[in-house]
Design a protein around this nucleic acid. Structure first.
Length: 650
RNA sequence: GCCCUUUUAGCUCAGUCGGUAGAGCGCUACAUUGGUAAUGUAGAGGCCCCGCGUUCAAAUCGCGGAAAGGGCUCCA
């Protein structure tokens, strides 16, 4: 007998050699039916594995994250099986589950179109109805595994990677795939299947390798779950910043101007300017000084910074005149360094914080461009802080605090930091080991002090030093790198930046790069999705729509609009159509406040205020309305003012 | 850049077998002054993404290009 400990702490004896499935069945038939995989101590195992020693045993359903992954991994095997049936020449490579949900499977020698995807999906549906059960096969020697996969060079490469481990495969019907498992006990558990995308992907993720055909899909144990998933996808599409921006007329791009070049329309420009004004006011209070620098520069500057050659492929090619090459700047840093070195500096004026909403242009790969999120021309909330090394950690913590202030004001609650380090194998970095180690040490210290959770990304560093990215997550779960920050020990040295220390000695400052609001383009793209286009009052391109019910209230409405405009509020008078139509129109334009003026309101000096959620407060006094709205705008509140109803107030 | 997909009116999209175009919204005009998500009637609006080819004839078929969209770390 063996003793099995269950998650609730109970311990029960079972005959040695019992499988997890038998144990689950003995507890409850329902449990056995729903369990997709078991966890024995800390290891995931197939339900069919006989247990011969005491262990902690947990039954995982699809609702568990690990359960989902196993479920989707098995669905990937079904996908490969269907592909092999329909396209026998195709070579399966790898097919893992993915974090965002579902799985992919990469195939070599498979050229298919969107229509074939439907056929494959149908074949998968046939397969799961055949009553197949994945069976584990263990190879006793590498040779045996190689022999079984002798026609598939990709599988052979995988075997070579794992030759020191036990090699196993899973067989379901005629299909065998080398795989460490585990898998779900019965394919019939997969009740709903959807193949979602067809894409290209490089073998082993390396663009130097050949391109494989990747099929993305997802599966569920219930149809209901598939419908919920589809609804989630549809909601994300409705929130897509490109769609909302189109509806709200925020920005456009024009083929004649070029890909990745944004034309900000008047309404989008309002958001841009409001953000910029806010950043200017805030950063002025936090001790920053603003500068303006040119868009182009002689190539020598970028040789000094080593952007040439390290960053060449992200830069637009140079233009030549006066026997000089000039480049469009991809970053503002070298210009700010030149401002630092424009005269001698003393420790007394440090930290020197130089800020600019700088225009940068980067030659992003055409396939990487994505709405406002990845563009070729961008305006960056940039600044460089020059300080003494002893102050670097404190200054960097302040930069993190500034991020937190911005995020809190905008209601961004889900964010984290990612420490990007260099890949020690790669030679694309500037090479001074002690500098890298010191910069990393300083940044880690600041991160620990800030207590913001962080992850580590090896290989993500800038060529001149490690960096910290802020990842922010929108309500629909899409996350983006919003800002990049660094403690830079390299550039000040390269640019010969110095200051006179307290003892009169010549010192090299530390440079902190920071951009809490990232670029206007990406940040506003994010905000559109974050707010679903329903911006807080201060950011809304149109703030108040004034809707007189009939001509009779035309003058009164116009007076109100003028009064609001005098306070710098963006009020628009809407006349002409039926009231229903104008309400609908304002709703679609996502104007946060609608003011309805009828005979009743005019005669009592009140307005009826409708918000985008469809709620109306009647009898709000005009004075109160104007005052509340102005205050809300001035304080850049996240939520709209609430108004007292005169009738209930009296 | 590479793989897959798409491109028809300002927007969303029809367009069958190859016979040079349609709808709704929007826009303009007129009528309508309406109490909280679409008033009615009429009108204007097209290099069917661009180029080359096949054909008596191309939005439609073929080739090339452009732009947009979905993908492209690891995870047998």
């Amino acid at each position: 007998m063996i003793n099995i400990t269950f998650p609730d702490g109970t311990v029960k004896p079972f005959p040695s050699g019992s499988t997890a499935f038998e144990i689950a069945s003995s507890i409850s038939q329902g449990l056995a039916r729903e369990t997709v995989v078991a966890r024995c101590n800390d290891e995931l195992i197939d339900l069919s594995v006989p247990l011969t020693t005491d262990c902690r045993l947990e039954f995982l359903k699809f609702s568990d994250i690990s359960g989902k992954k196993v479920f989707w991994h098995t669905t990937a095997h079904v996908c490969a099986q269907a592909v092999k049936r329909l396209f026998p020449q195709a070579l399966p490579t790898i097919g893992p589950p993915i974090e965002e949900g579902g799985f992919y499977y990469d195939f070599a020698d498979l050229n298919i179109t969107q229509e074939d995807l439907k056929k494959i999906e149908n074949e998968m549906k046939n397969i799961v109805q055949e009553g197949l059960t994945p069976q584990r096969i263990e190879y006793s020697t590498v040779q045996e595994a190689r022999e079984a996969n002798k026609d598939n060079p990709y599988k052979l490469a995988i075997i070579d990677d794992y030759q020191n481990e036990t090699l196993s495969a899973y067989k379901q019907g005629e299909f065998i795939d080398i795989c460490k498992g585990p898998h779900i006990p019965r394919l019939s558990m997969i009740k709903a299947i959807k193949l979602t995308k067809l894409a290209g992907a490089y073998w082993r993720g390396d663009a130097k390798n050949e391109q494989l055909t990747r099929i993305y899909g997802i599966g569920f144990p219930e149809n209901k779950l598939l419908r919920e998933y589809e609804e989630l996808v549809a909601e994300a599409a409705r929130r897509d910043h490109r769609k909302i921006a189109q509806e709200m007329e925020l920005f456009t791009v024009d083929e004649d101007i070029g890909p990745g070049m944004v034309l900000w329309l008047p309404k989008g420009n309002i958001i841009k300017e409001e953000l910029e004004r806010w950043a200017k006011e805030t950063e002025q209070q936090w001790g920053y000084q603003r500068v303006t620098t040119p868009l182009i520069t002689k190539e020598g500057l970028f040789h000094t910074s080593e952007h040439l050659p390290h960053y060449t492929e992200s830069m637009f090619p140079p233009m030549e005149f006066d026997n000089e090459k000039y480049y469009i700047k991809p970053m503002n840093c070298p210009f700010h360094h030149k401002i630092f070195s424009s005269r001698t500096r003393s420790y007394r004026e440090l930290p020197l914080r130089i800020a600019e909403y700088g225009w940068c242009h980067r030659y992003e790969q055409s396939g990487a461009l994505f709405g406002l999120m990845r563009v070729r021309g961008m305006q960056m909330n940039d600044a460089h802080i020059y300080c003494e090394k002893k102050d670097a950690v404190k200054e960097f913590v302040d930069v993190i605090r500034l991020h937190q202030y911005y995020y809190e004001m905008l209601g961004i609650t889900e964010y984290s930091m990612e420490l990007a380090l260099r890949d020690p194998q790669s030679d694309k970095y500037h090479g001074d080991d002690s500098m890298w180690a010191e910069a990393e040490e300083l940044m880690r210290k600041a991160m620990e002090l800030s207590k913001v959770p962080y992850t580590i990304d090896v290989g993500g560093a800038a060529f001149y030093g490690p960096k910290i990215d802020f990842q922010i997550k929108s309500v629909i779960g899409r996350s983006f790198t919003a800002s990049t920050n660094q403690i830079d020990l390299f550039m000040p040295e390269k640019f010969g930046l110095t200051y006179a220390g307290e003892d009169g000695s010549v010192q090299v400052p530390v440079c902190i790069h920071r951009a809490p609001l990232g670029t206007h383009e990406r940040f506003i793209g994010f905000l559109i999705e974050h707010f679903a286009g329903r911006f807080p009052l201060w950011l809304a391109p149109e703030q108040i729509a004034v809707l007189p019910i009939s001509k009779e209230q035309g003058n009164g409405a116009n007076e109100l609009v003028q009064r609001l405009k005098e306070r710098g509020l963006r009020a628009v008078l809407e006349t002409g159509d039926t009231l229903n139509k104008r309400v609908r129109d304002a709703q679609l334009r996502r104007i946060p406040l609608m003011v309805i003026l009828g005979e009743k309101e005019l005669s009592t000096g009140t307005v009826a205020v409708r918000t985008l959620d469809g709620k109306t407060t009647y009898g709000v006094s005009v004075d109160n309305f104007v005052q509340q709205v102005t205050l809300n705008r001035n304080k850049r509140k996240l939520t709209l003012p609430t108004f007292a109803n005169i009738k209930t107030a009296q």
